[in-house]
Design a protein around this nucleic acid. Sequence first.
DNA 1: CTTCGGTCTACTGTTAACAATCTGGTTCAG
DNA 2: CTGAACCAGATTGTTAACAGTAGACCGAAG
Lengths: 231, 231
Amino acid sequence: MSKSPVTPPLQRRERRVLTDDVADSIREAILSGRIASGARLIEDELAESLKVSRGPIRAAIFRLQQEGLVIHETHRGATVARVSVEDADEIYTLRRALERLAVESACLKATEADLAPLEAILLLFQSVPRSSMTRRRVAELDIDFHDALFRAAHHTRLYRAWEALRSQILVFLLLRDGLPDDYLTSWHRDHSGLVEQLRERDATKAVDAIDAHIQGAYARLREQLLQQSPA
Amino acid sequence: MSKSPVTPPLQRRERRVLTDDVADSIREAILSGRIASGARLIEDELAESLKVSRGPIRAAIFRLQQEGLVIHETHRGATVARVSVEDADEIYTLRRALERLAVESACLKATEADLAPLEAILLLFQSVPRSSMTRRRVAELDIDFHDALFRAAHHTRLYRAWEALRSQILVFLLLRDGLPDDYLTSWHRDHSGLVEQLRERDATKAVDAIDAHIQGAYARLREQLLQQSPA
DNA sequence: CTTCGGTCTACTGTTAACAATCTGGTTCAG
DNA sequence: CTGAACCAGATTGTTAACAGTAGACCGAAG
């Protein structure tokens, strides 16, 4: 009782291990563009630059592969995944299926404590002055919101499927070139509407809302991708 | 243009590496019940019994965790996942979402070459005398059929999500105690109907068919689970 | 100039030893 | 008797050295 005065024991604080730090470092390097799309990830190089042996590097690479950021081929090494328009199609069709189930499940199982984080993100979103909203920050808030939604679904396997997609979605959000003026307001409207419907436990309407949201996001993304590379 | 005379490049035959064999061994041991549900997987023990060092064992355990057969906790080791009624609920709701998308995608993208394996499994199913149909064999044919369906969807990320569920579904199929007399015939009817609708590219009907199929399978499973452990 | 064959190097896959952590029992104060 | 503190064994996390493979390079033959 003397160890933790205020914090309740709840679940044992999960130990962080070297592999976790390594995975975070490499993921951040990929997302920030410091390691380019398509570049090779050479275990020895990473091990030296992170001052760690190859063991944790390998484990981290497998994890990043699981997240879809990296492609690993036997005896040929790992490379940073390239994303194409077809990938966007895969990611958003699968995302749509997952989010529909998440909303449906959340309508049944979410407690008030699960919805609080969603509200918190909405408030945070409003409170931050728009001038200081970097693209990265907006993207992360967006991901955080949906992450909280998947948590609220209380569906372990669904959450893990989402984890396998999350970073890839973030990649797309980060390569948006500019956010339309009305994006921030419509973002807030969409998401707060969704929270309201979750609270009313109206599964049908909530699923329709998330469906429209994802479809809209994909339509905008697709348009931009086609503009950027009109191959 | 001169590179590929007759044989299309196909795909390079992917090299098998120790980790693959180890993962297969452990997976088989779990599915066959040789390693009980809830049992600990001790790296040294496995390493010794498989005559391999701990490296590949660890990699295999991570892979099996990804398949949902094993639960790994930092510094505390891995145990064979226990399955409960709630797990069945998670697995089948997620499976339903994935299979719906798979059918939808397959209606758009499947070629005749993709549908052939489905037909082949149906034929095989009919040609094998029912007396020699073990529970294991039936379960594997079932999984194989759906696996071919996911392949036919030509959707890499969807297929990987399916892979994360596949073995867990097999676990449930294997613990069926007895197959009702009419099961084998209705199985064939359901699946061949689905193939027919895929061939007609009728997405709406095909999705409805798979939906009914999964829901039915889940209903039967749920009934049995509740009977077995009426806790 | 192209193609075939062999060598060489850089890299991944594997191993075994070392370090850190957890678990369960034991002791001892209250 | 209860519970906290500690010790010891077992087990995982990490490291560094060894083994094997894939792809590039290069030179010779057609």
